[in-house]
Design a binder for these strands. Sequence first.
RNA 1: GGCCCGGUGGUCAAGCGGUUAAGACACCGCCCUUUCACGGCGGUUUCACGAGUUCGAAUCUCGUCCGGGUCACCA
Length: 488
Amino acid sequence: MQEKMVRTRFAPSPTGFMHVGNLRTALYEYLIAKSMGGKFVLRIEDTDQERLVEGAVDIIYNTLRQVGLQHDEGPDIGGEYGPYVQSQRKDIYLPYAEQLVREGKAYYCFCTKERLESLHSGNGEGEFGGYDRHCRNLPKEEVERLLAAKTPYVIRQKMPIEGSTTFEDAVYGSITIENKELEDQILIKSDGYPTYNFANVIDDHLMHITHVVRGCEYLSSTPKYNLLYQAFGWEIPTYVHLPLIMGKNDDGTVSKLSKRHGSTGFADLIREGYLPQTIVNYIALLGWCPKENRELFTLSELAEHFSIDGISKSPAVFDYDKLTWFNGEYIRAMSQEDFIAAAMPYFQQVFGAAQLNWPVLASILQPRVTKFTQIPEMIAFLKELPDYPADFFVNKKSKTNLENSADMLNAAISALSELQEWTVDSLHETLMGLAQKLEVKNGTLLWPVRIAAAGMLVTPGGAIEILAILGREESLRRLSFGLEKLKA
RNA sequence: GGCCCGGUGGUCAAGCGGUUAAGACACCGCCCUUUCACGGCGGUUUCACGAGUUCGAAUCUCGUCCGGGUCACCA
């Protein structure tokens, strides 16, 4: 019993933008292949010569590399079934279309765009506005005459007029569509390039793709694919249609995720401070659920646990809150070295080239940050003391008021002035010892110290860490300044 | 509008004829605590509706409603 090697393909068009929906499709294609020991193929679909975008292919490579979706075959690394760029395969498609013409399964169509447009506008809304099959039964001599006269043409597939077509989808089950709903679709465009649908079928067959994985917006065109496979007598692949990713609109409704819902491009999310592995983990769970009750997965763990029967049928709303939670989880799981390295650009945004006690700064930030982009705002107070009112010193729970805050600050300043070493440990020891000596609760001493050191009610980290980062000189300056404020 | 596909809390979702209807995010409360966060504990909130099948339905069937997708010489 030898199973056929599973092969999936990611077939993006180089549009210059990697939508998370596309990325999720790529992810599932990768996971389906890898979970079954198969191969994942990258194919660039650039048959639309009018929409070519400079550098767009590099964006595809970069994105796949950042998230770790390493393909086994593709334009950059080659493979047995290349080339892997459709524009380089241009000559492959026409002979297949001509074969269908010879066999009476397709035909030349000479209709002008103008005529086709009039067809669409002719009947009112709601009517089936498809092609009227004007050229389907043109006399042979007429076809030859028009061809000889170099009349521009397209090649269309003859759809059955009667009956219905049924196909199986691994997610949605058995789906039947009446053939009369199907238009005689164009296979070869007048510029000689194949249409997306046609090239897709030819390439998938030639590249031995076993699982055709794509968004379920293709569900209703799948019968056309099937009919094409049948016309050639080719084996039909396993279809895996994925539920759509939706975005929430302002009015509470949902629709296919698009730019108006916020950042929907991979690059946008990265720019906003999300980690590549966060994005992978989150979108893996949008439309798929593991057998066990668990949410945190690395890419290789996903490949281990993925299975098609866990794919959901219903559309999923993209939730930025949950994505942010995932990001926080990944940030907290980082080693301190990695965290510092990743946060350094944001540190430098505030401090320039200055050197601070990065480990202490990291220790207070890492459990609090959910996106790296939050960092500059969170640490700005360390660079410059904000203006703050004296009543910040008053806190009921810590039992502080204007009078005892001044006392606390006074005591703290004299104790800290004596301090030899300026570290978290020595500061901790000194201030805790002082509170004990003064017979006040820790909060009574530390609240005013923190307020004077930070100038803010809410800070990342406590008084001790903040003093440690500030250093002796700046700390004492800020504490004295606070004391002045209380005396005034 | 035709056709296709969906519908379990605000969101992601488990569930495949018998469950007190998991879990996560978000939200609220408590604890921890020098603020916030982290962590711990607890809580509010769900099977779209109506028939039918069945001893028994979130699970099966039909209808209704709602939502989405699709109807190109785009991919």
